[in-house]
Design a protein around this nucleic acid. Structure first.
Lengths: 190, 190, 190, 190
DNA sequence: CATGAATGAGTCTTCATTCAT
DNA sequence: GATGAATGAAGACTCATTCAT
């Protein structure tokens, strides 16, 4: 895939993301995606094995992009609170400014199409956070609970918030974002 | 006329829930559901207008059952903390002991098939919680933030936890549940 | 059938005619007809053997009604021209004032559902006209051509005209009707 | 790509026409047509948008073929009577030697599937006839009546005659055709 | 007599995918 | 590498009809 036309596979990704957000994962057929991408449906099969393969690769590519942004300028050595804040704020910023990518990931995560392997790979990209939690726990900054619980309280509310915002059920207020980060912190702090 | 089998629409519901959990919402076709329910596909249309109607009615029936359980023995007059604890514990208990129902609701909530009307009706069933939040805010027990934020931090982590548990990514420990409830409380308390 | 509820079978007829005109013969299902008639679909099967039987009986009942009107006050002994005129005028009057019945007959006549037997029975009702043609031919008033040709030129233009009128492609003018009758006469007269 | 079989859409047309004549428009399902054409049902959708589109295109293609034949060697400048005769005779010849095409057009014209646009396009193909009528009226050769009345009396009897003939209710005699043409002329002539 | 419930067969249409060019 | 053509399988849904009450 790497040696084929990078632009074409990129335009397929773009079309898929947009279409899935417009009409939903299960209504976004290969031919519709192809039409939107400006290629023939059969061309997609030059770049991907099948639909599932395409979606998994799309999922991972977004996760990678997301992780790059979340950990941009991420510095292990600052205070735990500051690192927590920084990463979470970057994360919120990413999902709010990449609506389509975020909503695709959400839809896909809730579907049986997400391959176990891709799920794991996606999680691995957030390794620095797990390190942060371990360090924080040993310093008694975080509660002595399962790391996955901490992880959940760190990112999930923001995702839920973004979904409510994009769904029109919530307003976006600078103030709310700060409150939300504070609430996350209160939940995980010792 | 033949007598209407009271259990038939119930068995269609049951088949739908199970199948949707096994293979996902969009792969659970009417004919597959019918086969699992032991009826002809056309029989479903005797009980429901169409697929969307069926799923919306299923959704509402689960939401109602859920609300009944969450508010079983719910007492407005005890302390806010106790009421919060009680409802959340009942909620967790419901989703953990009604895996299929819960996972169906999750899938359906994230799908475009969920009709706006059903969404609203579903939310209305949790009105007592909204009253609790208002009361708690006025007594400065809860943070002075959007009620929807409080609501999110109360229920969402538990749902995410259950999903992780059912997906095999988390263990279920009595201890974890208590920790989770504590974390929710820390998040919302003033 | 005669001893059953006459009103019910009548209301089924009425509903069928109307519905067929609204949505077409092939979209007018038994259940839709039943709903419009205010009875259960199964009730129709008390009065008729099946859909085809129902439509054939409906067809014949309309043909009979039509023949009654066409030959109302019909007098064999007046001049051939006058009898021709009278019958044709009555016919035109019938189809213009019984739009639904007429259009149903047209749709049904063009469908394979019309049973050969009903077709013949329907034609038999117009026997007096055939007598008129025979008499006219022997008196050299009409052309010496096949009676069915005469019959065709007498009734078909009016039917076509009415269809054009009901379809909105033609206007209805008192004058046009007279012209049409004159043209029919010119066609058949010797 | 596989090469597009030029004959495929033609064979679909042919199968559709034949089948519709055998079992009627509304019983001629896409899958039956496909089977008769020797292709998969989905293949039809490669060539046509849907059933309605297919039938409309079929209708127009027949109308065009018909008009080509009717106006073959048609000469504006000969006498009106001769032009009338020529066109009508060609028309009769066409419908008698193209039974399936003609009967299809008849069924389709009486169905709600005929799109307004196709109806108009179909009529436009007969423009020379309308010119003939206008000229004939101004020369007092034709009656001073609505052109649509003239048109009706020119073509409708022949169509009715052909339907009777194909339906087995009339015989085909060279003589009758001449008589029929004469009757049409008598009807329209001043 | 009347009818609600039930269904197998069928409707049109879309889908993911393959294949020859 | 790119693609138009082709298709079997499946989708949601409707139909005419039967049957037990």
């Amino acid at each position: 895939m790497r040696h084929k036309d990078e632009k074409k596979s990129e335009s397929i990704f773009k079309a898929a993301i947009q279409l899935i957000n417009e009409i939903g994962l299960s209504d976004a057929s290969m031919s519709k995606i192809a039409k939107k991408a400006g290629v023939s449906a059969s061309t997609i099969y030059v770049y991907f094995e099948n639909k599932e393969d395409m979606l998994n690769k799309l999922y991972l590519s977004i996760k990678k992009k997301m992780s790059l942004e979340v950990f941009y300028n991420y510095d292990d050595s600052i205070s735990i609170r500051a690192a927590f804040d920084h990463a979470l704020r970057q994360f919120i910023n990413f999902i709010l400014t990449n609506k389509d990518e975020f909503l695709f990931v959400e839809q896909f995560s809730n579907s049986p199409l997400l391959h176990k392997l891709s799920l794991k790979e996606g999680i691995d990209l957030f390794e620095p956070i797990f390190n942060l939690f371990e360090k924080g726990k040993s310093q008694k900054v975080f509660k002595q609970v399962d790391t996955s619980l901490l992880h959940m309280f760190m990112f999930n509310p923001a995702m839920q918030y973004a979904k409510g915002y994009f769904g029109g059920q919530m307003e976006l207020k600078e103030e709310s974002v700060n409150e939300l980060i504070q609430m996350c912190w209160d939940a995980v702090k010792a």
